[in-house]
Amino acid sequence: MDTNSINRYASAIREAIVAHEADIECLDREIGDGDHYINMKRGCEAIAGLANELNGLDASDALNKIGMKLLSTIGGASGPLFASFFMAMGKSLKTSEAISINHLAAAFDAGVQAIMQRGKAQTGEKTMLDVLVPVAQTFKHMAEQGHTRPEIAAALKKTASEGLESTRNMLATKGRAAGLGERAIGHLDAGAKSCQVMIHAVCDLVLAG
């Protein structure tokens, strides 16, 4: 994974987030405070603005730089979480070996672990983790079992969508919706939605070859 492909993934993510503006914003308005889409967009634009600086960096340094940038750009709950994700992923990819699909799966998992640590949260609390944790597990599992990239991409899309859907009937115990009790039921989590959108965007790129 070089910075070219990182930039390619980043712009696919950005386009996907913008394409889902209405959904994402609406979800955070319903059971949050309405800023999640703007936060995500600000983050995506910051990464886009980083393209030149990333040039020539290895994946580890590039991802770390993205994490740092997000940390000082997004703010809110999602900012430190996504920043932690990319910094942990970058750290995990600090290797002299060529980056394999197993490396990537492990790095993704490390990123998700960092989110769990930073947010002191787990699955079942109606957050982005309900998408990210199962995706990380499926990713690692399938990579270990030697599935092809397209196979993995297709499976991750499905897992992400299921994870998103699973937030619908949860009570929230982390994040802003935690104050809502029963009223959160019936609504998807905004952060879970943007994770699903991003994962789909990346996987679609992989599937497109």
Partner: peptide, 11 residues
């Protein structure tokens, strides 16, 4: 001060 309704960043 962060963005509107968005907490500021550590920097």
């Amino acid at each position: 001060p962060g963005q509107v309704f968005t907490s500021p960043t550590p920097d």
